[in-house]
Amino acid sequence: MSTATGRYKDVLLSLFAFGSTALILILAASIVARLLPAMQSLNLDFILKLPENGGRGGGIYPVIVSTVLILIISLLTALPFTIGVLYYSFINRHRNSVLLTLINTCIDLLASTPSIVFGLAGYAFFGVYLGFGYSILTGAFTLAVMVLPFLIRLSLDSIHALPEDYTLNSAALGLSTYTAFFRIIVPAAFPALVVAFVLGSARALSETAALLFTSGYSLRMPESIFDPGRTISVHIYDLAMNVPGGEQNAYKSAAILLLLILVIDGLSQFLMKKWREKGLCK
């Protein structure tokens, strides 16, 4: 567009683009500014000590253990379902599969379901019906169902982004669908699949509402996955809302949560860089 209106539109849209960047930067700066004092007073004791006085003092060791347990169990639970859907959609990619349409509809519905509803439904099913009560297991399963649509959508996209040529060449070499999928397609999409799981775990880590009803509030050290446990996000919520004088530790916990997400993110970036150097991904 070379007309005056064209230039006017260019300027306007650029302003919006700059505006959104500025907005994000301001938000990030305000988070860092608030967390900076908390970060300065962080030490290993905070991570490795038991909480005291309802979380006002001491550390968050049990909270970190519960968080890691819930995260790992939920991702491990979601993994086979994700792979199952990917494989099924791969072998049926040229057919009008009723099941695939149904799965897609469910993914959209699940993705737009409020997390508090997941919490209630998760407690009703895993907690009451299956009898796991308030426990790390109930929380992890509920979280798995919650991040599942997210994981499936992201990984489906990463597989669809691969050239159809891979499938054609695999078939022409006489590879079975099973081999083509697990030896060619999944490894070729692996970097993108890792990103999907990193984003999934970041999402799981930041979840609060669904866990309030499922993994419970307990600040005690979980002795098994059938015990209740409190994740960092829930801990922050509780300290900030229900524990007068808990603000200081709430900020410190928030700093830990952000650091955790940064570590996971950094680790995946690092791995990706290594693979790229080896020429194993684009």
Binding site: D165, L173, G174, I184, L280
Partner: peptide, 25 residues
């Protein structure tokens, strides 16, 4: 065997490009 217009090696090492089909067979 089939050779296509656009050559598509699998995005792995040269050796792996042989290993996968040979193992399959």
């Amino acid at each position: 065997g089939m050779v296509f217009q656009q050559p598509v090696p699998f995005p792995f090492s040269i050796r792996r490009n042989f290993e996968i089909p040979l193992k399959e067979h």
